[in-house]
Write a protein that binds this DNA or RNA. Structure first.
Lengths: 116, 116
DNA sequence: CATATATATCGAAGATTGTCAATATAGGGG
DNA sequence: CCCCTATATTGACAATCTTCGATATATATG
């Protein structure tokens, strides 16, 4: 189907939603979704999530840092944003901090990748 | 499953990907995905996409503008970003510009909504 | 042609974000 | 107790983003 011509019908005639159709987005829902999307909308964070999602065991920050060109505070900053979005979680063991992907983080990554 | 404890196994032991598992993200792929996610990561644009996805017919800019609290240049700016991301397309008829959601835009909206 | 209207573009102000150097915190080893 | 190392936090700066007023463009109408 050619999306460069106006569609005869896209979704939801008369406000009634056909199967699989997104309903109208309430402003507060849009805000919440936008926040989750912002946490994903950075190449470094996407790669971090991908890296963590491939691990059998949680990774410590120094191993994560080694995979990127950015400096340690920057990595720490991105990990914090991912944590605040509940896409990763962490645990301190001695001097080290170990990170892993949450269920929500895995779903988010799969969702992001599906954007092609 | 409790995501607040380190997982025994998340995905991809030894770099081998289990069914449905995201592969490592190449930097250029991450960049491209991040750009698409940025286009989605705004409450106004999410609501615009949702509004357009519900229409049987393309909507003209003045009708879109009427649904939001922002001024016309702001709406025009957001529509441009959605267009550059190929999530919407438009056509001029006389003085009016009519917008509709592309296939990619519909997929993106569904994907965004699936973030919960 | 003059005017009115719909939309886009420009330019600027303010907010947010990504990055890093410097510093703080805290655990482990001598 | 002192030092070394791993990580987090702070503060600064540049870049990017959102928004809006002003203006440009283009079409229809009288």
């Amino acid at each position: 189907m050619n999306t460069n011509t106006p569609p005869v019908s896209v979704l939801a005639p008369n406000g009634c939603c056909p199967p699989g159709a997104p309903p109208t987005l309430a402003p507060d829902t849009a805000l919440r979704l936008a926040e989750a999307l912002k946490a994903l909308a950075d190449p470094t964070r996407l790669r971090m999530l991908s890296l963590l999602a491939q691990q059998t065991e949680p990774l410590c920050v120094c191993d994560i840092t080694a995979q990127f060109d950015q400096h340690q505070p920057t990595i720490s900053h991105h990990l914090r944003l991912l944590r605040e979005a509940r896409f990763v979680d962490c645990e301190k063991r001695g001097v080290w901090a170990y990170y892993w992907v949450t269920d929500a983080g895995q779903r988010a990554l799969i969702v992001a990748l599906s954007l092609g």
